[in-house]
Design a binder for these strands. Structure first.
Lengths: 285, 285
DNA sequence: GCATTCTTGATTGACTGTGATCGTTTCACA
DNA sequence: TGTGAAACGATCACAGTCAATCAAGAATGC
């Protein structure tokens, strides 16, 4: 018997085998799917985890008990979908969308930073990629994004300043309805802003609370550098953060529509185009 | 049996010795795997280390005692599972000191919380353990500790509010030299405070900036609950956060010096004594 | 050299997670 | 409003895991 046991564990060491998922692994998987899709079905989870419906029901019950999701008939939904007023996409989800483009743009933007700078990063997946490019830098960074703060503190020597407010779980943003704040004492040489979309009307966000927070950050600097991959140039969202004339610089990739770039240049915006294929090359154009 | 063991270690391990592994080597291996995968199974560890399940269980118990992981049925999970681990040296250090006492005190303090409460947690290892006990709660929590915020956001349904300011890497504390802040709009029913020491002069901290930050938090509530294990009752540090008369409740363990407890009771402080051996028992005394 | 302490491994009974089955409840469609 | 299908909670037996205990070997100190 023991022989058999030993042999088994020995062979199954490579974790590719779908032997049996641990309870916590299932929980993590469930919560991840929930963050991405907002809702999960028991039947789907059976296929993904290989566990029985009974087990998955128990999992959902426990996770609901600890407040990490809300059960509905047929599955479960994210707690945030009802509780949080934010309409922003979840951090994890938007992080994986057009990741290569965002990464290229982020790398291009990082080249505009110098040690000693004081910069602002708003919450967004592109700015998160940007934060990843700042591991060797030594700057002061004000950000309202919890994941960006995590990244900078854990993997760089940059100093991090946070605004006060409530931490919104899904989007990982710190928001406050009040004006008094420590950030009113922060002066930045430039702000990097990622956004929901860019239209002739200006830089657009999808959520009024977020738009307000970004406008607040924007008041702490003169120079605004918008980082946006080429998929951002279609009309979406409805909250204008600022007009295009307020933008100092735009960093985007070569897929951006030329007529929008022309329009931006007419407004006095300096445009940097990054070729995603040779990501390190920065082309002033 | 022995055959099996030998065979196993021989075959399964590409990168190590067929002889017995030292305790510390196993610990390091366990923690490394934990960082990589977020979760480890006892059965897997048997295959990797060649040690028996009993030994590995003891390892996990010790590592949990020192706060370096959290045991779950079938294995153990990372204390900051899912999130970027915040490896703050000094935070980790104070976290592992008297971890069992702190954990017991934290559990006792957690019993004083109810769903719907608005509470404040200052930065400290005891309050960090307390945050771990709040996974099933649904409260509003104001904290100036980054690791506590991480824990609450990742593993509970509590709402989290942060003060603004600079994030200090080593201690994981958010500090601001300014008064204007979002927390001035926060009203809490109680504050849980961990501290550097407790003396007849009051609750003591070692750093003036931290003392000031805690005094600022303290102004947002009437009821102050100090959580401190019995090793905190010796004169250390030099910054008085508040006098003992300001303390509403003290939660400590049974090893606390009786004369200090008497003195505290004379000041009108309600004292809860926790027996670390039977941690769940809460004795009003 | 001998005793003490520490680490380790095996055994035991108790406990927890799992999957299958039951009857009941809820949902969707007519 | 009624009906069938799906989903639900409760329960049971099985397997894996747990903490406690004892015994054997290695390291340490006198």
């Amino acid at each position: 018997m023991q022989h058999c046991d030993c042999l088994l564990t020995d062979m199954s060491d490579s974790d590719s085998l779908p032997v049996m998922m641990h309870e916590r692994e299932r929980w993590q998987l469930i919560l991840t799917r929930l963050r991405d899709k907002g809702i999960v079905r028991v039947a789907d989870l059976v296929g993904v985890t290989g566990a029985s419906v009974a087990t998955l029901r128990r999992d959902l019950a426990k996770l609901e008990d600890s407040g990490q999701l809300r059960r509905v008939h047929g599955g479960a939904e994210s707690v945030a979908s009802g509780q949080t007023p934010l309409t922003a996409p979840s951090f994890d989800a938007s992080q994986t969308l057009n990741a290569d483009l965002k990464q290229a743009v982020a790398q291009g933007a990082a080249n505009l930073c110098q040690d000693g700078d004081s910069i602002i990063l708003n919450a967004g997946s592109t700015t998160w990629f940007l934060a990843q490019c700042l591991r060797r830098h030594r700057m002061q960074v004000l950000t309202n994004s919890f994941p960006i703060a995590q990244e900078l503190i854990a993997h760089s020597a940059n100093r991090v300043v946070l605004p006060g407010g409530e931490l919104y779980r899904e989007a990982g943003i710190i928001l406050s309805p009040f004006d008094e704040d420590a950030i009113q004492h922060f002066a930045a040489s430039k702000m990097f802003m990622s956004c929901y979309s860019i239209t002739p009307l200006g830089v657009i966000e999808s959520d009024p609370l977020i738009a307000r927070a970004e406008a607040k950050l924007l008041s702490r600097t003169e120079k605004l550098i918008v980082v946006a991959d080429s998929t951002k140039f279609e009309a979406r969202g409805n909250m204008v953060v600022c007009p295009l004339a307020r933008v100092t610089t735009l960093v985007t990739d070569t897929g951006a529509p030329p007529h929008m770039l022309d329009h931006l240049r007419q407004q006095g915006v300096e445009v940097f185009l990054i070729d995603p294929k040779e990501a390190k090359v920065l082309t002033a154009a």
